[in-house]
C-alpha cells in the first residue's frame, strides 16, 4: 500500500463521515442527492461480491464492509428516517439516474474486464462509480446555497479519485507494469467531472465566500 492509495481511501472514508455527520447532527439531508446515494449502494454491492470469493487483507475486508454499511445507512436515513426524509430536496434531485444504470450496464456487457458474471458486475461498478456523482452535481447547481458540510463532502469525494490516479501511476512504475484501461479511463472521467466543482470550491475557499455554482 502506497501513500497515495492510503490517502485516497482515507479521503473517501472521511467524505462519508462528513456526510453522516451532517445527517445525524443537523437531522437534514438538504442538498444531498438520493439518486447519487442509490448509485453508490449499487456500486459497492456489485463491486464487493469478491468478499465471498477472495481474501486480500483485514484492511480490505473491513473497508469494503464499511463502504457497504455506510452507503446503505445514508440511503436509509434519506429514504426512511422520519425527520431526515422531510429535508430531502426531492424536486431539485431530478436527474434520471436509471439511464446511467442502464448505460453503464450495456457498456459493461460490451467492454467487460472478463466475460463472467462477477467480472461484468465489477466492470459495471467501475463505470457506474465514474458517473454516480452527476445527480449530486446537478442538484448542487440548482441549489441556491450550498452548506459547508455538503461542499466538503463533494470535495473529498472528488479528491479521493484524484489520489487514486496518483496511486495508479505509482503502482504502474513500481509494481504492476500493466496498462489497466478500464479503471484508468473511468477514473480519469470520474475525476474530470469534478474539475468545475473544484474550481469554484477553491475560489470560494480563497475568497472566504459561500460556495455557489453558476447555473
Amino acid at each position: 500500500m502506497n501513500v497515495f492509495r492510503l490517502a485516497g481511501d482515507m479521503t473517501h472514508l472521511l467524505s462519508i463521515v462528513v456526510l453522516l455527520l451532517k445527517i445525524r447532527t443537523t437531522k437534514s439531508c438538504a442538498g444531498i442527492s438520493l439518486k447519487t446515494q442509490e448509485l453508490y449502494v449499487l456500486v459497492f454491492l456489485t463491486r464487493y461480491l469478491d468478499l465471498f470469493t477472495r481474501y486480500f487483507s483485514v484492511y480490505n475486508v473491513l473497508m469494503k464492509l464499511i463502504f457497504i454499511g455506510t452507503s446503505v445507512a445514508i440511503f436509509w436515513y434519506m429514504r426512511y428516517h422520519k425527520v431526515v426524509k422531510q429535508t430531502y430536496s426531492k424536486d431539485l434531485d431530478s436527474f434520471r439516474h436509471y439511464h446511467l444504470i442502464l448505460g453503464c450496464f450495456l457498456m459493461a456487457l460490451l467492454i467487460p474486464f472478463d466475460f463472467s458474471v462477477t467480472e461484468v458486475l465489477w466492470t459495471f461498478s467501475i463505470y457506474l462509480e465514474a458517473v454516480a456523482i452527476l445527480p449530486q452535481l446537478v442538484l448542487l447547481q440548482k441549489s441556491r446555497n450550498i452548506d459547508n458540510l455538503t461542499g466538503n463532502y463533494v470535495f473529498l469525494l472528488g479528491a479521493y479519485r484524484a489520489l487514486y490516479l496518483l496511486n495508479w501511476i505509482y503502482r504502474f512504475f513500481t509494481e504492476i507494469h500493466k496498462i489497466r484501461w478500464i479503471p484508468w479511463i473511468s477514473g480519469l472521467v470520474q475525476t474530470a467531472l469534478y474539475a468545475d466543482f473544484f474550481y469554484y470550491y477553491i475560489q470560494s475557499w480563497r475568497k472566504h465566500e459561500e460556495l455557489k455554482l453558476p447555473a
Binding site: 469478491d50 477472495r54 486480500f56 480490505n60 473497508m63 474486464f113 465489477w122 487514486y164 496511486n167
Partner: peptide, 10 residues
Amino acid sequence: ARSGDSKDEL
C-alpha cells in the same frame, strides 16, 4: 485472469 490486476483496490 486477475493476476497483475490490482483488485485489492477499493
